[in-house]
Nucleic acid binder design. Structure first.
Length: 141
DNA sequence: GCCAACGTTGGC
DNA sequence: GCCAACGTTGGC
């Protein structure tokens, strides 16, 4: 099991939008960055991820699960771009803000802090547990 | 709205 | 293959 973090601008695709898709989930399409795509290629079914609101909100608001492994991105003809499908699993009882993450020394190496522009990033197991704990999910799912 | 960081493009 | 120019992301 690996852990990830997905960024989305809530004005484009919000946690509410994601939850409306229910168990069927939805493509995480539109990624046009090789590193982010490679991360999605590395994902396995039922890997977990944080859903993070960028631009507005700036907080981890929920947890999603990979429900379909990498496949061609339906929003482009360009065969280079692939994406996974994800579905909403849980709300964060207490959303975890970027400020809190930056203020926590245990999370100083999170890609969210060090690779500001990477939209799909890996999360270590320790980081996963810590952010879940901060968000009121203890034990971590 | 600004701008730093950084990825991509294209001329040489 | 280098690197300047340019475009985009995303925090502030």
């Amino acid at each position: 099991m690996s852990y990830w973090l997905f960024k989305s601008e809530p004005s484009k695709w919000s946690w509410e939008d994601q939850k409306k898709k229910g168990a069927a989930g939805e493509e995480w399409d539109g990624v046009r960055n090789y590193q982010a795509r490679n991360n999605m290629r590395a994902m396995k079914l039922s890997d977990k991820g944080f859903f993070y609101h960028s631009n507005k909100g700036l907080e981890v608001v929920g947890i999603i699960e990979v429900c379909k492994p990498a496949h061609p991105d339906s929003t482009t003809e360009d065969p280079r771009w692939e994406c996974v499908d994800v579905r909403a699993l849980y709300d964060m009882p207490k959303p975890v803000s970027l400020r809190e993450i930056k203020a926590n020394p245990k999370l100083a190496k999170m890609a969210l802090v060090t690779s500001v522009r990477l939209s799909v990033q890996p999360v270590t197991e320790d980081e996963w547990r810590e952010v879940c704990r901060m968000g009121g999910l203890d034990p971590a799912p």
